[in-house]
């Protein structure tokens, strides 16, 4: 069973050393991902989504301290690699750009502005795939074609600023997938796009998953985007996964007050007269993480004396569905 997984993350804890002290950015996060599976990673800004994703490739800055219990392992073609055992930058290339590709929110910032898109695509292919420039160019143009960019051969010689936002994101996806990664990390890939273009890019991504069979970690703050693209979802708050499970389960039957809050805050079209319910307050600064459950300062169902003292354990509430919450614990027992 376990060997089927592409990615296994166990007890990942990550702190940043800063002048103000140690900041916990990721707190005891565990999840796994099978090939061809799409996992949504949802949470507000500052919840640690991007840091978690970057940790998979050890891409966080030098002041990051990983706890000794942390483990990240990739399994492909029967071989398992523990990321923390990779020491040199050369070894890390196995995951960075090799097994894992990443696309970002702002495609304008991810392409170098003074180098043509083609040169950038060829460069990374040659680096990772051990092929000639000519072959790399052919693969790149074919990939651009594949993601629905018209006149791919012409676009290959253009600069990022010559493309529209949607086109740029498509080119970004083409570049990320050209090395045939096992895992694609998509960090808010559609947040900067118009809804019409977002719909196109989401359609494209789900087609590509079917075709290439890679796993995707889809980072977003919009649960509706997750509902339309992911198979399973992990909800993060202040570095902790507070609830995770199959998408349908979590959205139709949310157990954690934070998940419920996120769902209620989302404007939906089925009932446009329903009032929008905000989650009260702001996400606390990571410098003063609340004692006990991380969400207790904003939680409408907070049990005082319990939630603000102890940290809730992960509790299974269904098939693959788990939640860390005292209120849910009481309801299920």
């Amino acid at each position: 069973m376990m060997s089927e997984q592409l990615l296994n993350v166990k007890n990942l804890t990550l702190q940043f050393k800063t002048d103000e002290g140690l900041i916990t950015a990721v707190d005891d996060v565990s999840f796994d991902l099978a090939p061809g599976e799409v996992m949504g990673l949802v949470g507000e800004s500052g919840s640690g989504k991007s840091v978690t994703a970057k940790a998979l490739m050890l891409l966080n800055p030098g002041n990051a301290v990983y706890s000794p219990e942390s483990s990240i392992s990739f399994t492909a073609n029967g071989v398992t690699v523990e990321v923390f055992d990779l020491k040199s930058a050369k070894e890390l290339m196995l995951v960075r750009g090799g097994a894992v590709s990443m696309i970002f929110q702002e495609p304008m910032a991810s392409f170098a502005p003074a180098i043509t898109i083609g040169v950038q695509m060829v460069e990374q292919l040659v680096l990772h795939k051990n092929i000639s420039v000519k072959e790399a160019k052919e693969i790149s143009i074919e990939m651009l074609n594949h993601v629905g960019i018209s006149e791919a051969a012409k676009r290959f010689d253009q600069y990022a600023f010559e493309l529209s936002g949607g086109m740029r994101q498509r080119a970004m996806i083409a570049m990320a997938l050209s090395t045939k990664p096992k895992l694609l990390i998509a960090d808010e890939p559609t947040t900067a796009l118009d809804v019409t273009i977002q719909a196109q890019v989401l359609d494209l991504m789900s087609d590509l998953v079917k075709e290439f069979g890679m796993g995707i970690i889809f980072i977003t703050h919009d649960l509706a985007v997750v509902a339309q693209t992911a198979d399973k979802v992990a909800v993060m708050y202040l570095g902790k996964i507070v609830e995770q499970g199959p998408v349908r389960e979590v959205i139709k039957n949310p157990k954690h007050p934070y998940t419920k809050g996120l769902i209620n805050a989302l404007p939906q079209l089925d009932d446009i007269d329903a009032p929008l319910e905000a989650i009260p307050g702001d996400i606390p600064s990571p410098l003063d993480r609340p004692v006990g459950c991380v969400f207790n300062t904003r939680c409408p169902e907070m049990i005082s004396g319990r939630c603000d003292v102890d940290s809730p354990k992960r509790l299974s509430v269904g098939h693959d569905h788990s939640v860390s919450c005292f209120v849910a614990e009481e309801q299920s027992s």
Binding site: Q198, A227, Q268, L269
Partner: peptide, 12 residues
């Protein structure tokens, strides 16, 4: 078209 492009919270 604008209306139908909005992602729905219902996975089905």
């Amino acid at each position: 078209a604008l209306l139908s492009a909005i992602p729905s919270l219902d996975p089905d």
